[in-house]
Nucleic acid binder design. Sequence first.
DNA 1: TCAATTTAGGTATTTAAATGCTCAAATGTA
DNA 2: TACATTTGAGCATTTAAATACCTAAATTGA
Lengths: 132, 132
Amino acid sequence: MSKVFSLSEAASIALHGIILIAQEKKGLNVIKIAERTDTSKHHVAKVMQRLVKAGYLTSQRGPSGGFLMRKNPKEINFLDIYETIEGPIEISECPMDKQVCPFNKCIMNNVTSKMTLEFKNYLESQTVEQYL
Amino acid sequence: MSKVFSLSEAASIALHGIILIAQEKKGLNVIKIAERTDTSKHHVAKVMQRLVKAGYLTSQRGPSGGFLMRKNPKEINFLDIYETIEGPIEISECPMDKQVCPFNKCIMNNVTSKMTLEFKNYLESQTVEQYL
DNA sequence: TCAATTTAGGTATTTAAATGCTCAAATGTA
DNA sequence: TACATTTGAGCATTTAAATACCTAAATTGA
């Protein structure tokens, strides 16, 4: 079975994690986020650190520490978070990014760029606030 | 820059390669397919061998050998070729294939499965014959 | 101050895809 | 028949991304 599209685990942790954090007034630590997202604490830590650096979260070390929201959930959409982790979404005509093409007309007929745009628009339409 | 969707080089070689072969009455060899698709001859050889085994092509060794169509281009659609290389396309509700989900409602709202279905339908709609 | 907790950051490992290499087998041509 | 050409097949190497691990630094509370 092959997958045409897959969300990286990092992007999934970022999106699910920030919602989980926003749902908790007192913040959440790595262990709890890892448990609820069914992922490794190592990976969660790495991803959350990037969201801290990007200004979406603050972190608190030490006992009863964890991650807290820094920005308003109303002002964070999924695309912000996704692109913080994955980099800007690229919408390219050629799915192979080839300079050389054997045909006059791309055999993919922009289907892949349409799909990508559809995905991007969806991410942009969803805010963290909608999931509280 | 991140890519949401990308066609593997193997799938691209298979789709472009079989059209190139179908366009030539006398067949095409690995070197020529590699040149026209701007890929390595090793990779082309590997992919074409799989299309031979799957019954789409025949191969001819020796001088002036190469690959020839075996099936009628009218009866080969892109999905056949794609799935020969990548395996059956999987359309799953959860983009992470998780058993455990922290939320009641998937934050991806079936957007990823809709995209996948759109892609699959496109592949199924295109035959090799349409590109001759 | 000491011990426990928790994030921070650097490094290592894993994985899958792509690529490269070598030799064998088949075939056409001189 | 001998040679050059071309695919077949297996294995090794390379590469990049993702994931995992390990130690340091910060913080809290007893």
